[in-house]
Design a binder for these strands. Sequence first.
DNA 1: CTTTCAATTATGTATATACATATCTAAGCA
DNA 2: TGCTTAGATATGTATATACATAATTGAAAG
Lengths: 252, 252
Amino acid sequence: MPDSIADLVEAPESGDASTSLYQRILNDIRDRIVSGEWEPGYRIPFEHELTEEYGCSRMTVNKALSQLAKAGLIERRRRSGSFVRRPQSQAAVLEIHDIRIEVEALGLPYRYELISQLKRRAGAADRDRLGAGVSGQLLALKCRHYAGARPFCTEDRLINLAAVPEAADEEFLETAPGPWLIGQVPWSAAEHVIRAAAADAEIAVDLGLAAGAPCLVIERRTWSAERPVTHVRFTYPANAHAVVARFTPSDS
Amino acid sequence: MPDSIADLVEAPESGDASTSLYQRILNDIRDRIVSGEWEPGYRIPFEHELTEEYGCSRMTVNKALSQLAKAGLIERRRRSGSFVRRPQSQAAVLEIHDIRIEVEALGLPYRYELISQLKRRAGAADRDRLGAGVSGQLLALKCRHYAGARPFCTEDRLINLAAVPEAADEEFLETAPGPWLIGQVPWSAAEHVIRAAAADAEIAVDLGLAAGAPCLVIERRTWSAERPVTHVRFTYPANAHAVVARFTPSDS
DNA sequence: CTTTCAATTATGTATATACATATCTAAGCA
DNA sequence: TGCTTAGATATGTATATACATAATTGAAAG
């Protein structure tokens, strides 16, 4: 199975009392690996060392390490110990980057603009986008990202205020909602849908296209600890953007 | 790891003495799920029932079921039991792009049609698609895939005959080039580009669309041991297809 | 008839223990 | 020196046990 880093359950805080001990051990080790603190080849502590460190039994440590091994993050060798593996390229495959980075990578000046901001109760259409379990207040945002003088893409976003109440007080004048959210909420799961669509009247105006012009639409739903956080729909003119995914088959 | 079915270690035979017991239980259950014997929603036996069936302790059964749950194949509910989940592993979408499967998953009859087949020397445009290192003969194919009576997508493919000489003698009347190549050449790396485009005159005719209609284009370059094997461009009507990628807390 | 609450049930986690297995180290011997 | 062999060691799997937790059922109370 293409096992990946993202598959490991993410907990907001490693020390959270609500997470189980083995999950906390797993998160701690995974964090040190993905942060680069423990580089590929690094020998992580032996089971009996972790057993002491966390004051638990070997079985508990073993459960965490076995799962990290299945996830491909570490490799376990009898008698030798457990070692951080080279990243298996699979996790970053469809990682979709911050738009500022994308634009600046093209050598163009980036600019962001908030078009509208509306706080309202969730309706049926909103539940369809964010997920069934959303009922309370949410924030609907529309913005536009520029590459130089030309519109690069539009952003249509819903934020679940039950999950991120701080968003209600944020102005989003300087910082785009995407980067702001990343700083506020650690995401634990994401789903991307990539498709083509014809520009409707609103999008056509926003992007300076003819109505019906082909566009690339990238939708992303994000959860944090099982709770829907945000749904965002980026719409790009067809010629402005492509998604690239590169990988080699990884064995786990 | 976009955790997926393929992420679970596969054993040739479930009864193999070399596989551990929990792995055998895991394989047995997984096989029944992927074969369709146990459909989504089916309640798989309780832990205590499996415990009896395999004559082992609950911990062993629990290990197998927990991993299946992390892999997203089953969902476990306290007091209620464990249930087969709807398939949602989308990591395979990018990895295995067999159109027949996609179409049949929609419940529609699949049909494939070869439009043209041409053997020629590589030109500059071909090198652009396949990679710089290609100089000899190649095979250019165009085909169309149907879902029911409607065209589902077009396929425009180049095959490097230096890497796959057997392709020169293949008719491609029954088997589409994609599945045929997978059987011939083990691929070691692939690169995907996903974008939107307006249908040009040829595509419009092939797909029965108006010229300029929005389409989703998926291009894939494949290498085997550093050598370019094939480049393929699938073009879908915008409403026919979307690429989905889900990174979930589901790993094994 | 509805609400409340306790019992039941299946899963979730953690423990101590045991033995198997792969692999490295070092001692012993040719 | 080269080979074999016997520990030592870390992981791999399996067990019995224990208690926690979520969800559902059903009985009692209003």
